[in-house]
Design a protein around this nucleic acid. Structure first.
Lengths: 112, 112
DNA sequence: CAAATATACATAAATAAGTTATGCATGTAA
DNA sequence: TTACATGCATAACTTATTTATGTATATTTG
């Protein structure tokens, strides 16, 4: 991903959340959506995206439907039930991560 | 580190920030301080910590002073001037990361 | 009309940052 | 005397990326 090393580990969270919001998306669409939402801050590379999608599918979190649109292939992904559950977990993990990092880095946020 | 994969990439930020706050710390002390501040949420493993400290030193961000306390060795690390500057950068990166992730994951936080 | 750019997928080699396991040494508590 | 805490270190392995390619079609641009 474009810039900071911090994004390492957050790609699957991003994918799951976008699919949670959009019901059905294909790979290229995901890269564009992320670029748009983040105003170019984050650019997902294909070398990261496609293996990640395949892994999520293999884990049973996503299911695929291949369509031909304008004579081009598109593989649409959507959340399985398990995927929807895992999305909740990943989002909780992200919030916990952010809280923990704030506590570490921002002394006035420290837990009581 | 203990739990989520999200912490990957944030160790150097944590180390630099703690040294920014404490002037001078040794490795074991850092692991304990992190455990304390995060209430056990985050446990830094030695296999991650020591290589990271060595790398930061090699990059000129930290300098070392070896002391013998209670007949045991301690390697105290402190920020160099460059290290202080890099701390600012890392903290900015962290804030930018958090903002970007919030925009992605929390639609009501999306940028205008 | 040719060339570049956008759309759409994919994979392989290399890199980075961790985990897990292990090793050494001293001191203290059970 | 055995376990646990303090204190450092490294090597082998794993995982998630980056970088570099490859294929193919569609559209824009000079």
């Amino acid at each position: 991903m474009g810039n900071a090393k911090l994004y390492k580990g957050s790609l699957s969270t991003i994918i799951l959340k976008l699919l949670n919001e959009h019901e059905k998306m294909y790979g290229y669409e995901i890269t564009q959506k992320v670029k748009e939402i983040t105003k170019g801050e984050l650019k997902i590379t294909e070398g990261a995206l496609y293996p990640s999608l395949h892994k999520l599918e293999a884990e049973g979190l996503l299911e695929v439907e291949v369509l031909k649109v304008d004579n081009r292939l598109r593989k649409y992904y959507k959340l399985t039930e398990q995927g929807t559950q895992e999305t909740v977990n990943k989002l909780e993990e992200l919030e916990r991560y952010i809280k923990t990092m704030r506590a570490l880095v921002n002394p006035e946020f420290r837990f009581d």
